[in-house]
Design a protein around this nucleic acid. Structure first.
Length: 968
DNA sequence: ACCGCCGGGTGCC
DNA sequence: ACCGCCGGGTGCC
């Protein structure tokens, strides 16, 4: 299999950017004429590698032409330098802009002539601080600092010298956040009494981890009762989230790092001042751990703070009840009250109309009697809720139409609205009033496709029927792209992919000013250059919320995109974020870290599962017990196992002697997988996989063997990491020497080393056209046709299940294995014993998955009591709380994968004690795997971001693992 | 710009 | 005077 031309080209383009980083260190090049200054050939490297830049030196220059521009600066204010190559008077021109992006002037031409080359070729980033900005009518001084890669330093210095500029050390009046030489008079930045110490990577990491701890504050512990329209009663920590979010949305307070001084608003980071009040950040980051109910919190927010601090209207008696009864949650109430009342009345009218016009279109909902309690799901309550999501949710990415149809089928109200012209019409009238006279009403929620149906469910579940919330799912080929229609909804739900697809393409989503935009799994936009991120940043809204469980996933860099989305000035421009926070922090500057902490504290609410509310843990999950059940193989099974084990030991032992374990890693894994499979069931070892790679035959045969190998590697679950990027495999491909890497990683290696690229694992030849991808999972139930027999493990499982059924037939169980064929064998046993079950594995499309999950989670009598689950199926969001028993049929390589799997039922919503049984075959590779688990856990506990294992360490660790596994 | 620079006007005291 | 000096015009890149 090889790739088409377009792929190649795209890749080449990608690589040309990446590869610019590897550049010549030959500084002699700088001795040539200016025009021969070496180019980094990389327009973005200085940006991307911001953290690794060093300070070359500083220089006092002049800004001229002030009188032609409106931008002003203060004393000690930061300014940005920007090349202006198309200036008609001087192609070397360099503009000077203030923090707001307004032009202040130009760099004087002699200096600009020197700078232009350096800036254009990205040899240094030049930053300015104006020491005396005030009251300069024509020119002003500027202190320039030059930052770049170490290897470019001498060249830049020489180049500047040639033009008569000498970069010096730090000048007296200079300002900035360069830690040790920060000489700011402002108290916030007083030099520490002790000499500034560069923090180690580890210290920094620790500080990082602490960032999100201990965010307890007054305003985050206050609780707020949700609007009547919220069906579910909130847990205390959710009421806290609600109070915090409402107060942020209605807040008028200055964003972090802004102060009011005289008649100006003053940014204490950049010293920028402006007359107009900077917009308050009406939103933030809700970074609660998974399972704490971020979705519910947002739904409560939408309903509780719908307009002007007032809740979404419910039923008929809207004005009298909800609006007046609730104390206004708005911060400043001065002088506006009469106007507001007027406004409210209008809303009420519109809602009256809305209610009557839409009443007929809504599906019949549960007739409410009394307050609904948020019992932690399960039986009775579930039973009372007629689930409308009966239609299978087709979320297939390929077939948009299907999905849309399925979704509309799910929400009849929406469907009818789109089809029936009359109803749309009436809602038009209503909404015109809403929009033009008063305010935006629509909340836009953007989420990954995988959780779209979850949002729909949650709205169904948590919104009271007579609240009549309009929800439109903007998804599928038939989606309604009329901005007027969309802005009449209360909630529009869409996915990142749809948003990105629409972007720049007459996107209605980008034409509307939203009341509120919510990003679910907000870390998705962490790459500032991704189209997705740009699409999100170009949305227009009053209030912005980011939901994420992992606010800083890899590093501080990831935060910028979120801050920019939150419209946090001046960070919307990446330069100011870099200069004031990111670089200082990564350089170990304490002040920078303090500022970062202050910032996070201001905009983030984060609770973990262990956070306490009023002295009690935020989540009181029932207990979880893990048992290991040892299995003794039957004599027949043992005999087959021993035979395979001896064979395997011979093979692997030979590799050890030859020192070629890693060269034959795929073969080693094959042996191990077969042993593991034999622990489960003898039929799992497919005869087709028994051939070895040596003595390769026809190309077709070779190809097939390789494909089998990559399948094996993937199925084995062992090689989850690519040994080039040391991250989890992304689009895995296999080389001819049978090693598996991310497609991107190995392609980079091939391009870099061409034409003689070698495999990073075994130094064998690798060629692009030899790479093979793993073909789509064909349902190869290879040896499934054999006559069915049980196995020791299956017997043990069935024994446990039957015993459980006798005790309590309603208890539900999850049966987990990494081998889908094993799950199929178990199916037969389950059928024989009359168990009802459903199944979830990687080969199922979204529609089938949703179907399986929903039928299992239901508590009807005919709902299956068992879920067969393949270990890696389903993302972290998978919720299987209906089960309280987990049977792990075979140990995973990575203990974290097991944990994650257990958490699918041991999470918010679980009311029963969870009992987990791990089946482990005595005297087998499985027992040895448990030993490795402990080592891996230790490793994970001590692993810091900075000191990831090197690839050679990983190799050695793998060799050691193999030794342990096969007792060699 | 309360500068520098340009270039025209001007030229004993 | 192929100078100096004066004072008006002028002024980013």
């Amino acid at each position: 299999m090889s790739w088409g031309f377009t792929r190649h080209d795209a890749l080449r383009r990608f690589l040309s950017v990446q590869y610019g980083r590897v550049r010549s260190h030959n500084s002699n090049l700088f001795d040539m004429e200016p025009d021969n200054l070496p180019s980094t050939n990389d327009s973005s490297s200085a940006e991307e590698d911001f953290d690794s830049l060093v300070l070359f030196g500083m220089l006092r220059g002049n800004v001229v032409g002030l009188r032609y521009y409106t931008g002003v600066v203060n004393n000690n204010e930061m300014v940005a330098l920007q090349r202006e190559p198309n200036n008609p008077y001087d192609r070397n021109a360099v503009k000077v802009n203030n923090v707001n992006g307004e032009q202040v002037g130009h760099i004087k031409k002699e200096l600009a002539a020197a700078l232009a080359q350096i800036m254009d070729r990205n040899l240094a980033k030049v930053e300015g601080i104006v020491p005396y900005g005030a009251q300069n009518a024509f020119t002003m001084p500027v202190n320039l600092s030059f930052w770049g890669r170490e290897e470019n330093k001498q060249g830049v210095l020489d180049h500047m010298k040639k033009y008569g500029f000498k970069l010096g050390p730090i000048q007296q009046s200079s300002q900035g956040f360069q830690g040790s030489f920060s000489q700011r008079a402002h108290s916030q930045y007083n030099a520490p009494s002790l000499p500034a110490m560069q923090m180690t990577t580890e210290q920094l990491k620790t500080e990082f981890d602490k960032l999100f701890e201990d965010l307890r504050e007054e305003d985050k512990t206050r609780e707020l009762e949700p609007s009547e329209a919220v069906e579910t009663s909130l847990l205390p920590h959710q009421k806290q989230a609600l109070a915090w979010m409402v107060s942020r949305e209605n807040s008028n307070e200055l964003p972090p790092f802004w102060e009011q001084r005289n008649n100006f608003y003053y940014n204490t980071l950049t010293n920028f001042a402006i007359k107009e009040k900077p917009d308050s950040v009406k939103g933030g980051i809700l970074a609660d751990d998974m399972g704490l109910g971020k979705t519910l919190s947002i739904i409560a927010l939408i309903l509780t703070n719908f307009y002007d601090g007032k809740p979404f209207p419910v039923g008929k008696d809207i004005y009298g009840k909800s609006s007046l009864q609730d104390k206004s949650l708005v911060e400043d109430d001065s002088g506006k009250s009469s106007k507001k009342k007027h406004a409210m009345r209008k809303i009420d009218e519109t809602h009256e109309i809305a209610s009557s016009s839409k009443g007929e279109t809504r599906p019949k909902r549960r007739q409410k009697a009394g307050k609904a309690k948020y019992t932690l799901s399960d039986s009775e309550e579930e039973e009372r809720i007629p689930r409308k999501v009966k239609a299978p949710l087709a979320c297939s990415v390929v077939d948009d139409d299907d999905f849309a149809t399925a979704l509309f089928g799910t929400l009849p109200a929406v469907k009818k609205k789109t089809k029936k012209k009359g109803i749309v019409k009436s809602s038009t009238d209503i909404s015109t009033k809403y929009d033009t006279q008063m305010h935006q009403r629509t909340t836009l929620i953007i989420c990954p496709l995988s959780v779209l149906s979850n949002w729909i469910d949650q709205f169904e579940q948590h919104v009271k029927a007579d609240a009549k919330l309009n929800i439109y799912i903007y998804y599928g080929a038939e989606r309604n792209k009329n901005p007027d229609f969309l802005s009449k909804q209360d909630v529009v739900l869409t996915t990142y992919n749809v948003l990105t697809h629409d972007y720049g393409n007459e996107s209605p989503l980008h034409k509307i000013r939203w009341l509120r935009v919510v990003l679910d799994e907000g870390h998705i936009i962490r790459n500032p250059n991704a189209q997705q991120t740009k699409a999100v940043h170009s949305l227009d809204s009053e209030r912005q919320w980011v939901l994420t469980g992992t606010p800083i996933q890899n590093s501080l860099k990831d935060l910028w995109s979120i801050l920019s989305f939150l419209k946090l000035k001046p960070f919307t421009d990446r330069e100011w974020w870099h200069r004031t926070i990111q670089r200082p922090v990564s350089m170990g500057d304490q002040g920078g870290l303090r500022r970062l902490q202050a910032l996070i504290k201001n905009i983030t609410l984060r609770r973990t599962k262990t956070t306490k509310v009023n002295g009690k843990p935020v989540l009181q999950l029932p207990e979880r017990k893990v048992y290991i059940q040892h299995i003794k193989l039957s004599p027949e099974e043992r005999q087959i196992y021993e035979t395979m084990q001896n064979e395997g030991k011979n093979i692997i032992g030979r590799y050890f002697n030859e020192g070629t374990v890693l060269t034959h890693y795929a073969d080693v894994l094959a042996v191990l997988v077969r042993l593991r499979q034999l622990c489960c069931h003898p039929h799992l070892v497919p005869t087709s996989l028994s051939g070895s790679l040596s003595g390769s035959s026809t190309p077709d045969e070779l190809r097939e063997k390789l494909v089998n190998k990559i399948k094996l590697v993937l199925i084995s679950g062992s090689d989850e990491e690519c040994s080039i990027c040391l991250d989890s495999l992304n689009m895995p491909v296999i080389t001819r020497c049978a090693h598996v890497f991310c497609k991107e990683c190995i392609c980079q290696v091939i391009y870099r080393k061409q034409p003689n690229a070698k495999c990073p694992m075994c130094r064998g030849e690798v060629r692009l056209e030899h790479l093979l991808e793993c073909p789509e999972e064909e349902s190869d139930m290879s040896d499934h046709e054999q006559k069915w027999i049980s196995s020791s493990k299956i017997n043990a499982l069935m024994h446990a299940l039957t015993e459980q059924r006798n005790k309590d037939p309603r208890v539900k169980s999850i049966i987990v294995s990494q081998f889908t064929t094993f799950l199929s064998l178990i199916e037969t046993a389950l059928r024989e014993s009359g168990f009802t079950f459903t199944r979830l594995d990687g080969s199922m499309n979204q529609k089938k998955r949703t179907e399986a999950i929903q039928s299992f989670q239901r508590s009807h009598n005919d709902s299956p009591t068992i879920m067969l689950l393949s270990l890696k199926a389903g993302g972290v969001g998978l919720n299987l709380t209906a089960a309280s028993r987990v049977y792990l049929m075979d140990p995973a390589w990575n203990p974290a994968a097991e944990e994650q799997c257990f958490d699918r039922c041991h999470r918010l919503g679980q009311t029963k004690e969870v009992i987990i049984t791990k089946f482990v075959v005595k005297n087998s590779v499985e027992e040895n795997m448990l030993k490795i688990h402990n080592k891996k856990r230790e490793l994970a506990a001590g692993a810091f971001e900075g000191n990831k294992q090197t690839s050679s360490e990983i190799k050695q660790a793998r060799i050691n693992e193999i030794r342990t596994l096969v007792d060699l």
